[in-house]
Design a protein around this nucleic acid. Sequence first.
RNA 1: GCGGGAUUAGUAUAGCGGUAGUACGUUUGCUUCCCAAGCAAGAAGCACGAGUUCAACUCUCGUAUCCCGCACCA
Length: 429
Amino acid sequence: MSVKLEDIVSLCKRRGFIYQGSEIYGGLAGTYDYGPLGNALKRNLRDEWLKFFVDGWDDMYLVDTAVLMNRKVWQASGHEQTFHDPLVECSNCHMRFRADQVKDKCPNCGKENTFGEPRQFNMMLKTNIGPIDDERSITYLRPETAQGMFVNFKNVLYSYQPDMPFGIAQIGKSFRNEISPRDFLFRTREFEIMEFEFFIKSEDSDKYFEKWRGDMQSWFKHLGLPAEKIHEVEMGEEDRAHYSKRTIDFEYDYPFGRAEISGLADRTDFDLKNHQEKSGVNMEYRPKDGGAPFIPHVIEPTWGLDRHVLAVLANAYSEDEQGGEKRVFLKLPAKLAPVKVAVFPLLKNKPELVKKAREVYEMLKKQVEGEVMWDDNGNIGKRYRRQDEIGTPHCITIDFQTLDDDTVTIRNRDTTEQTRQKIAEISLA
RNA sequence: GCGGGAUUAGUAUAGCGGUAGUACGUUUGCUUCCCAAGCAAGAAGCACGAGUUCAACUCUCGUAUCCCGCACCA
């Protein structure tokens, strides 16, 4: 029995992971807000990604560029043009076609004169810079973070004189005016992307495409996502983005079906070449060995952060039976768990237990990297269940024996088994 | 954006043209209480806006959001 999306949505709301955006006003389609636990999970994912793909490399430069960019960026990148095609919709079969490619007869259903007025279906969220709301002030919330890295290519070259190959990495928000947001965090209008542009010589493109493809597989393994739920899909020419020569989608088996979580694209020199042409700025890389300058070729691996949150949650969601009762727990890898360990006094109305538990709690807060949670509410079983539901790997309980011999029980989330350990020697392995 | 369905407390659900129920959760208290125990007390809800009606959570229309299909996903 696989997990249902609605179970995850319900748990996320109940426990403070993720809420519908603008909820008290009836929501706003395609937006979600991360509560404290969801944000902690997301932050842990970001941190892991940075460790995995950025911090470990000498030649990877992390930037954080503006969401708002000069409109010319989107003209040069081809985004504006690709999306300014007016479309018409057949009132009979509801198929849409580019207005300049059809006449009066619908190519799908064959009916005539079923087209209404051509309409813009712009996937970019348009906005105006400055108080004057006219054509000249138009720009867009970025539909991808990549352009921020391309337009700073020269800056990074000047500042760091990097050796080829090297990468420019970024984590940030992107915006797309999706026609139909769907499937919880999967298709939203505002989302976070982790990605890097890897600059190489064009003859090395196959080599690095394969290199990052392998590392992407390792990354999913690192997160505990099962290999059998990850699928590489080679995109056909008609499915590829306008800038891509080759694209592999990494798809994940979500509760609602198989869908993209990550992608790997060979963007060639498309972007840098266009920016050189449109901006007039030289985008060439000068080899240090005196070789001929050239515009680098780009391999771009990209990861949808919110889609990772969803995949990790779906993968972690588990149910079992404890004493005849259903138990819901998140089997999150410890490195992703929002709360690393929780501390309980067995009874909250015994001051000596509470005092001792407070000491352990304070001690662990200093020792443990990540959040330590205190809970003295209700009875001990309820507290275990609460922590299970948010995926806390370990719970430590201070009982009467603790007062005698300074030992505590450490309870494992997945097995519910307990071991007794000396306070001074607590190990959360 | 199209077609269909749905929306009642934090969650899951019942219900009726005439004062809104249940379960779990939650809050407070009691309890030497290790896997959602027990007892007592409490807070909390008909998505929003119009219309019909003496009276609307209930009927009608619109809007929003979610779910399912289609399309879209550069």
